[in-house]
Simulated scan of single mutants.
Amino acid sequence: MQVPAGLFLTFEGIDGSGKSSQCKRLDEALRRAGYDVVLTREPGGSEGAEDIRRLVLEGDPAKWSAETEILLFTAARRDHMERTILPALAAGKVVICDRFADSTRMYQGMSRGDLRATVDQLHNLMIGREPDLTLLIDMDPATGLSRAKGRQGTEERFEDFGLGLQEKMRAGFLALAAEFPDRFRTVDGAQDIDAVAADVLQLAKAALAARVKAAQQ
């Protein structure tokens, strides 16, 4: 099933909030409902962006400054937009993206310095697009960090900054939700996974219905 002008939906949240699992569950639910869906992630989602992902998510937490990371994430996002997101939206597909520019606004722009204006300037210059709907999975920082560290993967560079960063991130994401109320919806991540998935699906279906209704007017 195609959607007029497509629908660009992103998930945000602190590390360990469960957003990646919810991305996959929403992808499966919408596919069962007949929608054409592209499930992608950031950093990554295209060949060039995946190369940059390995640079920024692995290794010593101190190997990049926040300023350098902003440039790297924006470069990855530009390639991702050109090669994956924009073509899918033009084809009327639903794009579900695990993180987008709001994560850069948080991790590099606010939580590791006062660089939010720099992030926004680069975003406006090189990306120029916000999601149609952003689902924030809100989670207690200590619980989220414990979950994230329990994965024992190789992409733990940001988790290694510790609980302090996660606390700043949660506060920052909630502030972003208040700043952009038209596109942000906050979901209680402390619920069991099925309850979170039900809330997410309800919000996504409402956004899809609104998009179709707007196109018919």
Rank of each mutant, 00 (worst) to 15 (best):
E82P: 01
C97Q: 14
D79G: 04
V187L: 15
E155H: 13
R99V: 05
P4C: 01
R25V: 01
P141G: 05
D132Q: 06
V187S: 12
L122A: 07
R83L: 11
L86W: 10
K168H: 04
A148E: 03
N124A: 15
P4M: 00
M81E: 09
A215T: 00
V119H: 02
R105Q: 13
L39D: 06
I52L: 11
L135D: 09
A206L: 12
R116L: 15
C23A: 13
F73V: 07
A171D: 15
A88M: 10
M81P: 01
R112C: 08
S46E: 00
L55P: 00
Y107I: 07
V38F: 06
T118V: 15
A148D: 02
E58I: 15
C23T: 13
A148T: 05
Q216H: 10
T68W: 01
L71T: 13
M106Y: 08
L176P: 02
L9Q: 11
P141H: 12
G13L: 13
A117N: 10
L86P: 00
A215V: 02
R25C: 03
L9W: 12
G16T: 01
I70L: 10
A207R: 10
I52R: 03
D182G: 09
T74N: 09
A5K: 14
R99Q: 11
S46I: 01
L163P: 08
I127L: 07
L115C: 08
E69A: 12
V3L: 04
R129S: 07
G189H: 11
R78V: 12
A198K: 09
E67D: 15
A5L: 00
L72E: 04
D27C: 14
T186E: 11
R25E: 06
P141M: 09
P43V: 09
T134W: 05
A206M: 09
K149F: 08
D194C: 00
I127R: 06
R41I: 05
M110I: 12
A214R: 02
A76R: 06
K168C: 00
A198C: 00
R41M: 03
T10E: 14
L133Q: 10
A198L: 03
G34E: 08
G92S: 08
R211P: 01
V56R: 00
P131Q: 10
K93I: 03
L57C: 04
L176R: 07
E47S: 11
F184C: 09
S46Y: 08
H123S: 03
M126D: 05
A215D: 09
P181T: 05
E155G: 05
E47I: 11
G44T: 09
V212L: 08
K205M: 13
R211V: 06
D192K: 05
I127K: 04
M169E: 13
G13H: 13
G172R: 07
A75Q: 04
M169P: 07
F158Y: 14
T74F: 03
V212H: 09
F173E: 10
P131Y: 01
P181D: 06
Q2L: 14
W64I: 03
G109L: 02
E155K: 13
E156L: 11
R170F: 13
A5H: 13
L203S: 07
A209S: 13
T143M: 13
N124Q: 15
Q166C: 00
V200Q: 01
G153P: 02
I14R: 05
A29V: 03
G48R: 10
T68A: 15
L208Y: 05
M139P: 09
T68Y: 02
G172K: 01
G189E: 14
F100W: 10
G45Y: 10
A171Q: 12
Q152T: 07
F11A: 12
